[in-house]
Every structure is written in C-alpha cells, then in structure tokens.
C-alpha cells in the first residue's frame, strides 16, 4: 500500500476513534465538519485540480438538499430513496450547468456560476408554498431512518457522516492518481497544451463540473437528512464562498486540504462567535490574507516542505 493511501486511511481511522474520545459537543461539530468537507472536496475537484473557479457552488449543495428534502416533504418518501433523488438531481443539474457555463472561461465563468446560483436561490424563495422560502423546513426525526438506523442519533449521525466522508476522501485519492485526474491537473496548468497532447479538454472539464456538483449535492442531501433542517440560506451567495474559503485555507489541489480548511474555519468561527456576532469578519480577513500571503494553503505548504508524496 502506498504512503498516500496509508495516510488517508489512517486519517479516517483517527476520525472513527475520535468519536469515542471527544465530548459530545465536539463530535457533533466534527460530524458537521465532515459533511461540509465533502462539499469542499467537491469544490476542490473544480477549483484545486481543474482550475475552474466557481462562485456559485451553493446551487449544487442546495439542489441535493432540496432534492432530498422536497421528496420527503412533498412525496412522503423514505430517507434512503430521497437521498438517491438528491444525488440524481445533482448529477442532472450539474450536467446542465456544465454544458452552459463551460462555454465561458475565466471571469465570465465565475459570474455565470454566480448568476445561476442566485437564480436557484431566488427560485427557492419564489416557490415559497413548496419550499417555505427563507424559513425553510424541518425533516422530522421519524423520517430520518435508514435500514433501522436513526440518523438523528449523535453516534449514528457521526458514523454516517464519516462513511460519506471516507468514500469521498478515498475516491479523491484514487481520482488524482488516475489518468483522468492527471489530465485535469494538466488542464489547470495549461489547457491548450493538454488539448494538443490529444486530450479532450472540454469533456474532462464537464466531467469535473459534474463530479464536483454531485459531491456538493451529496453533501447537501446528507446535511438535510443528518441535521434535519433545509433552508434557503444554504443557497445564498455566502454559502457559495465558504467552500472557496475552506479550500484556499486547507490547500487547493490537495486531497486532505479541504477537510483541514473546513476544520480550521469551523473552529475559528466557533471561537470568534463567543465575542462577536460578526463571524463573517473572520472569513473576510482570512480570505484577504490567504490571497496575499498563502496561496498554497496549509496542506500545500506541508506538501512543499515536508511531504512531497502527498496527493
């Protein structure tokens, strides 16, 4: 087994053990962080590996979340099939977004994703009778059951989150070492050159958008089912900026980076909220400082200095 694989499996084992050690408050936080990290890992597929900067990733998260949530609310579905609907909706939606948005590049791409995301947010508000708009709705505990497991139970919830996180993390380890993953990096570095080596850059970018959007959607659906709440704030612009922040902080183009970034930001916010309501201030300052002084993020620096083998 390679060093990279050992390291990431080790990280998963450590997280599993932590559930038994940490106080309830922190293991609850960690469950949330793992789900959000899947969202950030999805973002990293596009931004960190393929070089596509999206400013509207909340739309994918929201499509997954509302896909699952509305299936339950409107059609009385069970949790597992609702999760499936969330995933399918994410795949189809990100395919559509990719087909349109990838006709643009650079700044135009960022603004197109921002606009699509804003449209999704406004649609959620507009169909207020179905979605309950800004207020959102709660998925009742009775529905949050899969195969006899109660997803609202803290321990079950933790391991459900860990399962999703582990699948995403090991999937990423596999992806970045695969032929496709290397082509994505090639496109990030020099798309013209990649094309002139015979790679279909458009198809690869579309794949990146769909994978990225689906991971974000899976995180959204899981978030709704695990924590019970579905709301329009998960489709708003600030929620699109979060994964950018997580990935920039943790290290774009590293597998574990998005998790590290999410962990740090989550606790930074947690600590700062004890003395100010303006918790987004921290996010703003971190964003500015990162772009100015630390473009590689935490794990990027770790990889450069100490662990060249880190994928």
């Amino acid at each position: 087994m390679s060093r990279a694989l050992t390291f990431h499996i080790g990280a998963i084992i450590v997280l599993a053990v932590l559930q038994f050690i940490l106080p309830v408050y922190h293991s609850g936080n960690l469950a949330r962080i793992m789900v959000l990290a899947v969202y950030a890992m999805g973002y990293n597929v596009m931004f960190g590996y393929t070089g596509l900067l999206s400013l509207g990733h909340a739309m994918f998260f929201a499509v997954g979340m509302y896909g699952a949530g509305l299936s339950i609310r409107l059609f009385d579905m069970a949790a597992a099939p609702a999760f499936g609907i969330g995933i399918i909706a994410s795949i189809l939606f990100s395919l559509g977004v990719g087909l349109l948005a990838l006709r643009t590049i650079g700044v135009a791409f960022m603004i197109v994703t921002l606009m699509f995301s804003q449209a999704i947010y406004l649609l959620i508000l507009y169909f207020n009778p179905l979605t309950r708009g800004d207020e959102g709705f709660v998925i009742p505990q009775a529905v949050r059951q899969v195969a006899g497991f109660d997803l609202s139970d803290p321990t079950t919830r933790y391991f459900a989150a860990l399962l999703l996180f582990a699948i995403a993390l090991l999937g990423m380890v596999w992806l970045v070492r695969s032929r496709t993953g290397r082509v994505l990096v090639a496109i990030r570095e020099n798309e013209e050159r990649a094309r002139m080596l015979g790679y279909d850059s458009w198809a690869h970018k579309l794949f990146a958008v769909v994978l990225s959007g689906t991971m974000a959607g899976a995180a959204g659906a899981a978030y709704g089912l695990l924590f019970g709440s579905v709301g329009a704030s998960f489709a708003e612009v600030p929620f699109s900026i979060l994964p950018l922040l997580y990935v920039l902080l943790g290290g774009p183009g590293t597998v574990i980076g998005p998790f590290v970034g999410t962990l740090f930001m989550f606790y930074l916010r947690d600590i700062s909220s004890s003395f100010t309501d303006a918790h987004l201030l921290v996010a703003g300052i971190v964003l500015v400082l990162l772009t100015m002084y630390a473009r590689r993020g935490i794990m990027g620096v770790v990889r450069e200095r100490w662990a060249k083998w880190l994928p």
Partner: peptide
Amino acid sequence: AHKRVQMGIAYTFQITSIFD
C-alpha cells in the same frame, strides 16, 4: 484538435508551452 492529435499529429509550440 484533440482528435487530430489522437490520429497522430503532434505539434510543438513556437512559444514554449509546457506544464510549468
């Protein structure tokens, strides 16, 4: 372009184009 490259046309750029 990528299909032509797959058919066997390789091009090296006048202005160096590599993965920096």
